Structures are given as structure tokens and as C-alpha cells.
Simulated scan of single mutants.
Amino acid sequence: MITIPYLTALTTYFSYGLLFAFGQFRDLFRKIFDWWSANNLQGYASICLGLEDFYVRRLYLRIQYCFGRLIASAPDAWFDVVERYSNDNNKTLKRATNITRCLNLGSYNYLGTTVLHTDLEECVAKFVGKSAAVVFGMGYVTNSTILPVLIGKGGLIISDSLNHNSIVKGAQGSGATIRVFSHNTPPHLEEVLREQIAEGQPRTHRPWKKIIVVVEGIYRMEGELCKLPEITAICKKYKAYIYLDEAHSIGAVGKTGRGVCELLGVDPADVDVMMGTFTKSFGSCGGYIAGSKELIQYLKYTCPAHLYANINLTTSCSTDYICHRSYS
């Protein structure tokens, strides 16, 4: 845990407070001016209240140039940035004649995966003990878009009652039947599995096309470790797949930071789908799915989060950390 110096925290809050105060004073004078001037919209309510766009008007406009950069080339690893200037406090930006060659650290590019992403995926797979991996630009999206690809109508998802909202939304969007077992209670999981296998699909009572049990490595609000050895044994017994979310456990537990499998002595081969994020222990952004080569190839061809979205290049800063832990 990183401790922020009191002086840094206080000066930061003071700066925000100062900007807010000056913005409020300027809004007050604007209201007085508008009241004094003629109003051609008598009887109409204001489309936008003062505080609704306060951040944009008084804070963001002053730094918008930092985020809205104009480029004059393809959004590749390197691109040409057009310099701009403003004569009205950044309300409008005018194009200058200078063009600067810059490194792209975060831009949409649908033309393919970079070498850095491939290196990161290989490092992730080796780190968690799987054959292959695929990385995504956001951890929440990783869960919410992967589950609908893995399972659909005629399938059964058995989810821990305290699973993260991203898992819940992914399960709901899959079209599969959803059943919940008591939080971190293997006996109840076995009871639900046995009952559902015996009953089969609703109405038709046909066998389930697929059964996936979804758990987390460490439950974020409770700080509680998943009883993975017992759950793994039950899933093996009933031929159910295991989906393990390690957003809060990967990099944090285990002798070398490889998560709950390492900590609890579970063979990664016994976990079919291993999900994790870079936003916690790795101090970066994005998420990943690790599994068999066949699974990862299938996900790359079918998952919308991979096909229709970009992968932020800042995710690759996790590579050094993961590779260091993998090879040391």
C-alpha cells in the first residue's frame, strides 16, 4: 500500500478547491450579467443548469488540448501530431504549422495487434501457467463480454452469490440459465450441481449443453479467499467447467504472485478459464483471459471486446512486471 504524503494530498485538494471557487465566482458574475441583459427565452427552462457543465466550462476547457490531440497520419505505434494554439482560453483551438512525431500510448487502431500485445499475452500465459492468453482494454469488459461467448441458450451458469457485477451482467447477457450457490460454500455448490444435472433444461429436461461454475479468487468486499481446492474437486466430479476471476488475487497472493492456484496448491490445468486484470497489483489497465490455445483462438475470433475494440498500449507496461516475476 502506497502512503501519500500529507502535503501532496493537501495541496492537491487545495488546487481543486481553488479552481472550484474561482469557477463559482465567475458563474455568479455571469448570472448577474445575464439577469441584467435582455432575455429572449422568457418562460423556457434552462437546457443546462450551471453545475451540469461546470466541470467542462471551468476545468476541462483549460486542459482539453492535452486530451484532444489532432493527428495527421495513421494511428500506428508512432504518428504525427499537429500542434495547435488558442487565443480565447482554449474555447477554440487553431491549427499551427508545426507537426511533431510522437509515440502512441492510447489510440484506436483496428488494423491489428502490435508486437507488444503479443509479448504481453505470452508473458501472461506463462505467468499463470496456461498455454495461451488474450488481453483486453478493460477488466469489466473482459467478464461481461467473454461469458456470452463461452456459453449460451441451453447452457447453465452456476455463480457464487457475491460475484462481481461484471460477472452478473455477462451471465445475464449470455442467454444461459443462471443458478446461484451460497457464497463460498462448496457443499451447496454440489447440491445445486446435482439437482440441476438431474432436472436438466427447463421444460424439455434435456441435458445441459455446457455447465460453467464461476468464482472469484479473492472476493473484493469481504477479502475472503475462494475455497478453490474443494470447488475444483466438485467440478471434476460433475464434469463442469471452472471460470476463475482473479482480478483481486493475481499478483497479490502466492509465493511468486501467481494467484490463488499457487497459494492453495491447485494445478492451473484444473481451471479451464482464468481471468484477471492489470488494474490492481500490476498498476496498469486492462484485463486478460488465459486458457488452452483452442479456447484463446476461439475467443479472438468471436469476442466483440477483441474484434471491435482497441487495446490500449499502456497495458503493455504490465509486461515488464509479469515477465520479471515469470523468469525470476
Results as ranks from 00 to 15, higher is better:
Gly286Phe: 08
Lys210Glu: 01
Val214Thr: 14
Asp160Phe: 07
Tyr13Asp: 00
Tyr44Lys: 15
Val215Leu: 09
Phe136Arg: 04
Val128Glu: 03
Asp53Lys: 15
Leu116Glu: 10
Phe22Arg: 11
Ile167Asp: 00
Asn104Trp: 07
Leu264Asn: 03
Tyr238Arg: 07
Gln297Phe: 04
Gly68Gln: 13
Gly139Met: 08
Tyr219Pro: 06
Glu191Arg: 15
Lys169Gly: 00
Val180Asn: 01
Gly155Phe: 03
Ile211Asp: 05
Asn184Gln: 13
Gly223Thr: 14
Ile296Val: 14
Ala38Cys: 01
Glu195Lys: 15
Glu216Phe: 07
Phe136Ile: 01
Ser328Arg: 11
Thr92Leu: 08
Ser86Phe: 11
Thr204Lys: 11
Pro304Met: 10
Leu147Glu: 05
Cys323Gly: 06
Ile151Arg: 12
Thr256Asp: 02
Tyr13Gln: 05
Val135Tyr: 02
Tyr85Ser: 14
Asn104Cys: 09
Glu262Met: 11
Phe25Asp: 02
Pro5Arg: 06
Pro187Val: 12
Asp27Asn: 15
Asp267Ala: 07
Leu189Trp: 06
Lys31Trp: 02
Arg220Val: 02
Arg30Trp: 03
Tyr110Cys: 10
Cys303Ser: 11
His306Phe: 14
Leu264Ile: 08
Ile296Asn: 01
Val149Tyr: 07
Lys255Gln: 09
Gly106Pro: 10
Asn39Thr: 05
Gly283Arg: 13
Arg101His: 13
Lys255Ile: 00
Phe67Val: 12
His205Pro: 00
Lys237Asn: 08
His183Pro: 02
Ser166Leu: 06
Phe278Leu: 11
Arg84Met: 13
Thr100Lys: 13
Arg84Tyr: 00
Val273Thr: 08
Glu195Ser: 15
Ala72Arg: 15
Ser15Gly: 03
Lys153His: 03
Leu156Asp: 03
Pro5Trp: 04
Glu216Trp: 09
Ser15Leu: 09
Lys293Asp: 02
Pro187His: 10
Gly287Leu: 10
Arg84Gln: 11
Leu264His: 07
Ile99Leu: 10
Lys210Gly: 01
Thr277Gln: 05
Asn184Ile: 13
Ser131Tyr: 01
Ile250Gln: 01
Gln297Glu: 14
Leu162Asp: 01
Thr315His: 05
Arg57Asn: 06
Asp270Cys: 08
Thr92Asn: 11
Leu147Tyr: 09
Tyr6Arg: 15
Gln42Met: 03
Leu59His: 07
Pro268Cys: 09
Leu264Gly: 02
Gly170Trp: 04
Met274Pro: 00
Asp320Lys: 14
Cys48Thr: 15
Met221Val: 07
Glu191Ser: 15
Asn104Met: 04
Ile151Lys: 12
Ser281Trp: 06
Thr204Met: 04
His183Glu: 01
Asn89Cys: 00
Thr177Ser: 12
Lys126Tyr: 00
Glu216Ser: 15
Gln172Cys: 02
Thr100Ala: 06
Ala309His: 13
Phe127Tyr: 14
Ala9Asn: 06
Gly170Glu: 03
Ser46Lys: 15
Leu59Glu: 04
Asn312Ala: 09
Tyr238Gly: 05
Lys126Asp: 04
Glu216Cys: 13
His306Met: 06
Leu299Tyr: 01
Thr277Phe: 01
His248Phe: 13
Thr100Cys: 05
Glu199Cys: 12
Glu195Gln: 15
Gly155Lys: 12
Leu61Phe: 08
Met221Asn: 14
Ser73Ala: 12
Asn98Leu: 05
Lys91Ser: 04
Cys66Thr: 14
